[in-house]
Computed example of a mutant assay.
Amino acid sequence: MIEVEGLYHSYTNDERYAVRNVSFNIKEGEIFGFLGPNGAGKSTTQKVLTGLLPLQKGSVKIASKDAGKPDSSFYNMIGVSFEQPNLYRKLTGLENLGYFAKMYDVPTEDPMELLRMVDLEEAASKRAGEYSKGMQQRLVFARSLINKPKIWFLDEPVSGLDPTTSATIKEIIRRKKKEGVTIFLTTHNMHIAEELCDRVAFIVAGEISLIDSPRNLKLRYGQKLVEVEYRLDGSVKKESFSLLQEADKAKLNSLIEKGTVETIHSKEATLEEIFIGVTGRELR
């Protein structure tokens, strides 16, 4: 559905590349996470894929269409949710969606239904400029669905949202995946990537370090550990034990046999820990 080969992009039109030799492909109905710290090249890549930046070098195909030469049919099939709200502030939430719906020549969603989906129905007649930052972000998210996109680009879709709203947004993303929508998700939030993505790419300084599923990455780079709280001399101790090292297994069995264990939990590496281990960079 999305094929990227040897993508380069420079904002200075020289060899100081913001994105360098980036290649990946995304299958139809897949959620593909593009993960990296701020300034890694995530948004630059997305802007090239969506036609907002010119294709300078490399090949980008979106549903077999050349992203370097976008036309109306290209924009009819994609939806884009930006991290920073870009709305007509003097128009109401409903008017914003209605305005954008008229830009497409394909069947569109009911604006009020989209507002209801992101819990903005009661604010439909309120000017977007009077919305809180979180409400504006939800409106941008809803707007990205107005043309019933087959390919959906999401940039930090839950950034700054409260847990309840984040859960709603994530459930909508899961539902769209089930409907066959292909989703390109850029984020530095490893938790949402673990929850939602079929595969992820790690990008640092404009270059991809690796591509794989979160599960495979945990199996490849994680350690098999259990975290145990046990009582010793009247106080509670916490310790991690490897399930692969004989000495650790023997000590753990001894604690279990003595009946001193109070809690025991499996402990797998997080995607963030793996990212730091593989790239040597923190997500900030």
Results as ranks from 00 to 15, higher is better:
151 I>D: 10
98 G>S: 14
136 Q>G: 11
79 G>T: 09
155 D>F: 10
140 V>Y: 03
271 L>W: 06
37 P>L: 08
165 T>G: 05
84 Q>D: 14
241 F>N: 10
47 K>L: 11
23 S>T: 14
166 S>R: 15
168 T>M: 14
171 E>M: 07
55 L>N: 09
253 N>K: 13
217 L>P: 10
36 G>A: 04
3 E>T: 08
204 V>L: 06
224 K>E: 13
258 K>S: 12
32 F>E: 12
210 L>I: 14
10 S>M: 05
216 N>A: 11
97 L>R: 01
60 V>G: 04
232 L>T: 07
213 S>I: 05
237 K>A: 08
179 E>A: 14
247 A>N: 15
82 F>I: 01
154 L>K: 03
129 G>V: 03
17 Y>S: 10
30 E>L: 05
204 V>P: 10
231 R>E: 03
126 K>S: 04
236 V>M: 02
247 A>M: 03
74 F>P: 00
129 G>W: 01
20 R>Q: 13
110 D>P: 05
127 R>W: 00
140 V>L: 08
157 P>D: 02
81 S>V: 12
110 D>T: 08
276 I>A: 02
263 T>G: 01
57 K>G: 08
165 T>I: 15
241 F>Y: 15
157 P>A: 02
225 L>Q: 11
252 L>M: 11
180 G>T: 08
284 R>K: 13
107 P>S: 04
83 E>N: 11
187 T>I: 07
227 E>R: 14
56 Q>N: 12
159 S>M: 12
33 G>I: 08
122 E>T: 06
258 K>H: 05
211 I>M: 12
95 E>T: 05
115 L>D: 01
54 P>A: 07
127 R>E: 11
2 I>T: 01
245 Q>C: 02
249 K>D: 06
189 N>K: 11
77 M>Q: 15
